[in-house]
Simulated scan of single mutants.
Amino acid sequence: MRLFGAGDVRALAAELDLRPTKRLGQNFVHDANTVRRIVRLAGVGPDDVVLEVGPGLGSLTLPLLEAAASVVAVEIDPVLAARLPATATERAPGRDLRVVTADALRLAPGDLPLAPDVLVANLPYNVAVPVVLHLLAELPGLARGLVMVQAEVAERLAARPGEKAYGAPSVKLAWYAEAHRAGPVPRAVFWPVPGVDSGLVGFTRHAGGAPPEADRRAVFAVVDAAFAQRRKSLRAALAGWAGSAAAAEAVLRAAGVDPGARGESLDVAAFTAIARARVTAGS
């Protein structure tokens, strides 16, 4: 299969009269080694149905089609979505591509022609975290993934308690899956060249799936409150959430958490214990 090079990307962009926009986070990969590396690190195989968000011109779509049983590509730009099937026919004939013109942040299972088990995507930097979390919430069959995001976002998503980058995105992704850094991506492989570095994050969903939606909402509310004032102790940071500092301390002690600790020291299990302790205290 002949993958895209820099000349192919520019030629196709010219054909479409495409002017990449920051609003849509349009930075297109033009290096064949990079996209093959992504597919390899994602562990895509012949039985997989891959969900690709933001396929753009199709640079990553082509090696995904080569490796997977099917690729469901979700593209918000109608011009790019309309051109992608022709690109696949030209360069990956006979492979199964389904294109959905939609906003990934509003995607629901019924919008997809197939149920994907793997997410592989070069995500727009400004919406990367909400897209990953939304897809994990909406698509329970999504078992694993590998996404390319801004390097700082990659650090946040894969950070562990106590690390400088650890925050709400780290905990929320940990609610669904085990995450890991999968390496850097140089700026030079993109057109246009972005002003920030990129990185790869892989994840594997926890066995047994996520607990009920009500639990998720309760836990994420604690997480948001804790990291909204991350320099404060949990007793102070959770005062508004619990109703008062004294109430927050009572809930924290019931959960077995030191009221003087900060949110950055807690893992997702501790945040879950806090949310459940509040429910127990109010019952």
Score class of each variant (00 low, 15 high):
residue 81 A to F: 11
residue 217 R to N: 01
residue 227 F to A: 09
residue 242 A to N: 12
residue 143 A to Q: 14
residue 13 A to T: 04
residue 194 P to V: 05
residue 199 G to L: 02
residue 178 E to K: 12
residue 205 R to P: 09
residue 145 G to N: 01
residue 128 A to S: 15
residue 131 V to F: 05
residue 278 R to C: 05
residue 149 V to G: 06
residue 266 L to I: 05
residue 149 V to W: 10
residue 185 V to P: 06
residue 21 T to G: 13
residue 184 P to W: 06
residue 14 A to Q: 13
residue 132 V to F: 02
residue 160 R to W: 02
residue 234 L to Y: 10
residue 186 P to N: 05
residue 176 Y to N: 01
residue 261 A to P: 09
residue 130 P to Q: 02
residue 195 G to E: 15
residue 177 A to L: 10
residue 107 L to T: 08
residue 212 P to R: 13
residue 97 L to F: 10
residue 39 V to S: 06
residue 78 P to R: 08
residue 91 R to E: 00
residue 210 A to R: 09
residue 156 R to N: 11
residue 223 V to W: 11
residue 15 E to F: 00
residue 116 P to Y: 11
residue 282 G to D: 15
residue 221 A to Y: 13
residue 188 A to C: 01
residue 199 G to N: 05
residue 129 V to A: 11
residue 231 R to C: 09
residue 224 D to K: 15
residue 127 V to N: 04
residue 94 G to K: 06
residue 92 A to R: 12
residue 265 S to I: 03
residue 190 F to I: 06
residue 36 R to I: 03
residue 237 A to I: 08
residue 118 V to Y: 06
residue 150 Q to K: 10
residue 185 V to T: 13
residue 40 R to Y: 01
residue 139 L to G: 04
residue 26 Q to L: 01
residue 238 L to V: 08
residue 191 W to S: 04
residue 32 A to I: 03
residue 37 R to C: 00
residue 49 V to H: 07
residue 11 A to V: 00
residue 172 K to G: 00
residue 46 P to E: 15
residue 143 A to D: 12
residue 274 I to Q: 01
residue 102 A to I: 03
residue 270 A to W: 01
residue 243 G to Q: 10
residue 268 V to H: 05
residue 244 S to M: 09
residue 95 R to P: 03
residue 256 G to A: 06
residue 216 R to D: 00
residue 135 L to F: 12
residue 198 S to L: 06
residue 98 R to P: 00
residue 255 A to L: 13
residue 210 A to Y: 05
residue 248 A to S: 11
residue 9 V to D: 03
residue 212 P to L: 03
residue 48 D to F: 10
residue 264 E to I: 07
residue 173 L to S: 01
residue 187 R to G: 05
residue 7 G to P: 00
residue 223 V to G: 07
residue 122 N to G: 10
residue 269 A to Q: 14
residue 191 W to N: 03
residue 213 E to S: 14
residue 187 R to A: 13
residue 204 T to M: 00
residue 106 R to T: 14
residue 178 E to L: 11
residue 56 G to P: 07
residue 216 R to G: 01
residue 166 Y to N: 05
residue 95 R to L: 03
residue 100 V to W: 07
residue 222 V to L: 04
residue 248 A to K: 10
residue 148 M to R: 02
residue 61 T to N: 07
residue 198 S to C: 13
residue 66 E to R: 14
residue 157 L to E: 08
residue 219 V to F: 09
residue 212 P to W: 01
residue 192 P to T: 04
residue 43 G to L: 11
